[in-house]
């Protein structure tokens, strides 16, 4: 049975989609798979389970997770302020949010490293008052990733918050709900799917981020070495199968995590009748 649409063109657009996906995504990714197929299972396991590689996986995923959690909280607050309240300079602030998108990540990394190193303005303050060193530690990676991933959260939450029907809040309030109850049981559940999307984007970006991190991380093996740097190191040693093995593993883990987040999102929507 053929369905009729107002806008025709299902076949050409689907064809284009598949062509584009193939050219830009699938061919490069399958090359990755094929290259790593040069290794046998034992060799592959040996590369992946090497202590230094395992450590870098831990650093990458843990820092990305922490950073996207922090970015989610603050991104939500920023989106809230931007949507809910009028204030002078709002447009400027709104434009500032997108800056990490536009800034070359290396610039961001250098600036952050300069500020947060023990002799830097913020770094010195933190060192003197709390004894905390940020730059050249895993904490530095988290700071860089928060900087990079914040706009993802803000920009995904903002439109949903904008569209949120505030009469729902008024209704809840008229039924006797306190402000906290209104937020927890009315506003948050409606924003949560969007927040989860923002979190997933922030996390995915954080796991793959290279440019800004290497300047602030210190890149100490076993401590603050991230997976992308591991891959570059292998490449510089012309160990291409080794690099692809790590890359492939990272790809699989990331894909799996994003899939889990997507399923979670689907479940949330379904449970709240939005599907």
């Amino acid at each position: 049975m053929r369905q009729s649409y107002i806008m025709p063109g299902f076949r050409p657009t689907l064809g284009f989609t598949l062509f584009y996906l193939g050219l830009v995504v699938l061919i490069p990714l399958s090359t990755l798979v094929f290259t790593s197929l040069q290794l046998n299972w034992a060799q592959y396991l040996a590369i992946i389970t090497h202590d230094r590689v395992m450590a870098s996986f831990r650093v990458s995923f843990v820092t990305a997770l922490l950073a996207s959690c922090v970015a989610s909280v603050f991104g939500f607050i920023i989106a809230w302020v931007l949507v809910r309240y009028p204030f002078p300079g709002k447009r400027v602030l709104d434009a500032l949010i997108d800056l990490p998108f536009a800034l070359p990540t290396a610039v961001a990394g250098i600036v952050l490293a300069t500020l947060y190193q023990p002799s830097g303005i913020i770094g010195k303050l933190l060192m003197d008052s709390f004894g905390v060193q940020v730059a050249y530690k895993p904490l530095g990676i988290v700071v860089a990733l928060i900087f990079i991933s914040l706009p993802f959260v803000v920009r995904t939450v903002e439109p949903v918050l904008q569209e949120f029907d505030s009469s729902m809040e008024e209704a809840a309030s008229s039924l006797g709900a306190s402000r906290l109850q209104v937020f927890v049981s009315i506003i948050f559940p409606n924003i949560f799917p969007a927040l989860l999307t923002g979190f997933a984007l922030a996390f995915a970006r954080g796991v793959g981020e290279y440019g800004s991190v290497i300047f602030i991380a210190g890149n100490l093996p076993y401590v603050s070495e991230i997976v992308p740097l591991m891959i570059i190191t292998k490449l510089e040693q012309y160990d291409i199968p080794g690099a692809t093995a790590i890359a492939l593993t990272m790809l699989v883990i990331s894909f799996f995590l994003l899939l889990v987040i997507n399923l979670l999102q689907h479940w949330v929507r379904k449970r709240s009748g939005q599907l």
């Binding site: 009469s167 008024e170 009315i186 559940p189 409606n190 009748g273 939005q274």
Partner: peptide, 12 residues
């Protein structure tokens, strides 16, 4: 008790 023009039911 307040009833809104566009119902304002909690959609979740």
């Amino acid at each position: 008790g307040f009833v809104f023009q566009h119902y304002a039911l909690f959609r979740h």
